[in-house]
Design a protein around this nucleic acid. Sequence first.
DNA 1: TTAATATATTAGAATATTAGAATATATTTG
DNA 2: CAAATATATTCTAATATTCTAATATATTAA
Lengths: 110, 110
Amino acid sequence: MDIDKKIYEMHAEMCKIFTNSKRLEILNILRDGEKSVTELEKATGLHQSNISQHLSLMRDKMIVETRRDGTNIYYSLADKRILKAFDIVREMLYAKIHKNAEFAQKLDEK
Amino acid sequence: MDIDKKIYEMHAEMCKIFTNSKRLEILNILRDGEKSVTELEKATGLHQSNISQHLSLMRDKMIVETRRDGTNIYYSLADKRILKAFDIVREMLYAKIHKNAEFAQKLDEK
DNA sequence: TTAATATATTAGAATATTAGAATATATTTG
DNA sequence: CAAATATATTCTAATATTCTAATATATTAA
């Protein structure tokens, strides 16, 4: 298969991970370093099974890595470069929000 | 609603656009500048209706912009910053491929 | 106005994703 | 070994996404 197509598919596949706001929240919490499932449960308020599902998915896709310490399992980012990509998207979103706000204001002025 | 949650949701929503390899291919073609639907049809080999659907979606989400010239409609990127994010993801993917290849080679050596 | 070209929309079947409930597994402590 | 704690897995109903084919709309040229 065409190598370019393959990369597009891998890219699309990776982005599927980022289509869930809870997963993005989890990843953003991991920005500061590894966290256990329980810590993530407290930080997000999600059900344990649900967090575990999200983490399992992200581990399969090699977005996060794990380290066991006793009964705890600590999750961390496998490649911190993803944070840079997230930051760019966030910049774009803020710009979009700002643009929309300006547009709304112009409508009000009429 | 919590502003952070809102941003995570917008981010997730935007990433939905990138979960389709055809859309990523289209966006990458637009890297070089605006293209008409027909040009994109030729470049990708996709059905016209399908391209139109993808473009319509990306236009709704303000990822691409349009300009009409006669019967042609030219599509372009609304915010070129997205390309930088794509490049980071691609770097990560290449690193992952490389890592996997090394691992496979170690297995062979045994 | 009619034909030709470019683009958009709709409908529908196949497939994928989600959260939560229930259950299972693994580790430590007593 | 039994109990307690932490984490993982499985199942299911609801919802969302995909592509193709068919049809519709818009613009230009004759």
